[in-house]
């Protein structure tokens, strides 16, 4: 599903050169739920940005679903992001002037779906996160947990094969965090590959694999037995 071989990412300014990822090697199989942990500045977000085609890398090879993304144009990268990747952001990144329906609609419009198809997908994905009855509400009228659920609905509406979550519970209280985590596990069980960047070791324990990043490299790679979510229901 995702294969990174000797990926290096160097940020250069006039004065400073910073290596964010150094000979980064990682393979993620279809259906995996991988957590990426590590201290601040370790390169987690850089990895996520490269994995999600939000950023290019300096050297190495990255195969996404068998496609070498090195030489893709901006337009091709946008298309690949839209079709294969769903994003969940720490601060939800919902568009405040659009209601839930229109927010979920955003990536679907870029996909070129018909109005009927979009309507069906928006309704289904909002139903899946339990917010179908609030589709005319604005994000500001929802709690943080609900907003993140909308963001998940937006990510799922295009039926991506690969979900990237950047600290998805970072702005939520523990109860809401558990609820969102349970939803992600459910999505993973239905076949979607998920990579989740998190600071929280407890959340990481609930995924199938954990990758620990330090100084731009993977320092530990372990397979986990997901903990039961006692209070997820």
């Amino acid at each position: 599903m995702l294969s990174m071989n000797n990926i290096n990412k160097v940020f250069r300014t006039d004065l400073v050169e910073t290596t964010a990822l150094r000979d980064f090697n990682l393979t993620i199989d279809e259906g995996d739920f991988v957590s990426v942990t590590g201290p601040s500045g370790s390169g987690k977000t850089t990895f996520l940005n490269i994995a999600g085609l939000l950023e290019t890398y300096t050297s190495g090879q990255y195969l996404l679903d068998g496609t070498d993304v090195s030489n893709l144009s901006d337009r091709q990268r946008s298309q690949l992001r839209n079709e294969k990747i769903g994003f969940i952001f720490q601060s939800f990144n919902l568009i405040p002037d659009l209601n839930l329906y229109d927010n979920v609609d955003v990536p679907l419009r870029y996909r070129g779906f018909s109005k009927q198809e979009r309507h069906k997908r928006i309704t289904q994905s909002l139903e899946r996160v339990g917010l179908a009855n609030r589709m005319k509400h604005l994000p500001a009228q929802l709690s943080g947990g609900q907003q993140q659920r909308v963001a998940i609905a937006r990510a799922l509406a295009g039926e991506p094969r690969f979900l990237l979550a950047d600290e998805p519970t970072g702005n939520l209280d523990s109860q809401m965090a558990k609820s969102v985590m349970a939803l992600l596990q459910e999505i993973n069980q239905q076949g979607t590959t998920i990579v989740m960047v998190t600071h929280d070791p407890e959340l990481a324990m609930q995924t199938g694999k954990n990758v620990f990043v330090r100084d731009g490299q993977i320092s530990k790679h372990e397979t986990l037995v997901p903990m039961a979510l006692a209070s997820n229901q």
Binding site: D74, R75, S78, R81, N82, N93, Y110, R111, G158
Partner: peptide
């Protein structure tokens, strides 16, 4: 940030 999010969600330039 909204524009960046749209780009992340698949909007071309």
């Amino acid at each position: 940030k909204q524009i960046g999010t749209r780009r992340a969600l698949g909007a071309s330039k």
